[in-house]
Simulated assay, not measured.
Amino acid sequence: MDKLKVNLQYILPKHALSRLVGSFAASEAGPLTTAFIKWFIKQYKVNMEEALHSDPRAYKTFNDFFTRPLKPGMRPIAEGDDLVIHPVDGCVSQLGPIKDGHLFQAKGHEYSLHTLLAGSREDETKFTDGDFATVYLSPTDYHRIHMPMTGTLRKMIYVPGDLFSVNPLTTAHVPGLFARNERVVCLFDTHKGPMAMILVGATIVASIETVWAGTITPPTGPSVFSWDYPSDGKQAITLEKGAELGRFKLGSTIIALFGKGMLEEFDDDVYAGAVTRLGRPMAKLD
C-alpha cells in the first residue's frame, strides 16, 4: 500500500491539483469555509488555544486560518548570540554535516547540494562541508517560518520543480526529493558566516511567501530566477533572530544550511524524529 501511494504521485497532476486546492483555500466561502476549518481542527487536533484568534469564525479564508498568528509570548525566543533557534514548529527529518557535496535525505537516499541550490557553484561553495537541518511541518503545525539567527538577505532564488508530498513516507522512497521539488532559496550573511533558508514546495502547497517579496509562487515559473539584494545601506534587508521570514499556505518542509565551521554542535534533544518548537535552541555556534 505504501509503495502504491508513492507511485501514484508520479502520475498525478500535482501542480494542477495544488492550484485547485489553492483557489479554494483563498476563497471567502462563508459558512463553508468555517465548516471546513472546524473539520480540519478536529481532524488534525490543532491547538487553537495558542492562536491569536481561537474562534474558527474569525478567519475569512482557509489560508487565513492556516497561517494564523500565535498569541504574544507563545514561542519565546532563546537569547544569546551563540545560539541558533528552531525556525519553525515541526519535526526534524534529518540533520548533520554536508558530506562530499551531499545531504542525507533518508535511508538509501541523498541529494546534491549543487542541485538543491539551482546549480550555482558560487552558492554551493559557501556551504561545502557545512551543516544542515531539515524540518517537516505537518498539517497541525504553526506555518510561519522565522529566522534561526540574525541575517542580512543577499539573494533569493526561485527554483521550479515537481510537487511531490514531503511527508515521511514519500521522503523515504522518492530519490532526491528536496532537490527536485519546487522551492525558494533565501541566502543570508550572518555574523558567523553564510546561512540559507530553503522553503520547499509540496503537493497542495498553495503558496510560498516571504515578508520582503510577498507571494513567490504561484504562478509556477518555467526556469530558475534570482534576485540580488544590497548588503549595506538603507535598502539592506536585515531580519533579527526570531523575526518572521515567510510562510507556507498548506504544509511543507524547510531546510536550513550553515557554512563550514559555523556550528559547534546541535543540541542533544535535536535528532531525526524530534519535535521542534519555534524559538527553542537548535544548535550552538562555534
Rank of each mutant, 00 (worst) to 15 (best):
V166R: 06
V174H: 07
Y44E: 12
G273F: 11
P218T: 12
F258E: 06
A35M: 12
F266Q: 11
I254V: 15
D55P: 00
H86I: 11
E265F: 11
L163C: 07
M1E: 09
F178A: 10
S226R: 07
A26C: 02
G261T: 07
N181I: 12
Y158C: 03
T67A: 13
L137I: 11
L187F: 14
K38A: 14
L177R: 10
V159N: 05
T170K: 03
P160S: 13
Y10I: 07
M48P: 02
A133Q: 13
L239R: 11
K241I: 02
Y136V: 06
S252F: 03
V166D: 09
H146R: 10
F132P: 06
T128G: 00
S207N: 09
F266P: 00
Y229W: 15
W39F: 14
G261N: 06
K38W: 08
A35G: 15
D89K: 06
G233V: 08
F188M: 04
S207I: 00
T61Y: 01
I85S: 04
A213H: 11
V135Q: 08
L177W: 03
M48S: 10
S120R: 05
K107Y: 07
T210C: 08
G259I: 02
G246L: 02
K234M: 00
P72H: 03
R68M: 05
L95V: 07
E240D: 12
I98C: 10
D286M: 04
A206I: 06
T150P: 01
K42E: 14
Q43I: 00
S138V: 05
D64A: 15
F40Q: 08
Y111V: 02
L199Y: 10
Y10Q: 06
L83E: 05
P13Q: 07
L153P: 05
H143A: 08
L95M: 15
F248R: 03
H15T: 10
R183P: 01
G80K: 01
F65V: 04
S120Y: 10
W212V: 08
T128W: 07
V224E: 05
D189L: 00
I237P: 01
N167I: 08
T33N: 01
P148C: 03
E264D: 11
I145W: 00
P160D: 12
Q9R: 08
L103E: 04
A118L: 07
D228N: 14
S27C: 06
K60A: 15
V184E: 04
G242L: 00
K3T: 13
D141N: 15
V159I: 15
H102C: 10
L4W: 11
D232V: 13
H143W: 11
A29H: 06
G22I: 11
F62E: 09
K107A: 10
T125Y: 02
F127K: 00
P218A: 09
G130V: 09
Y271P: 03
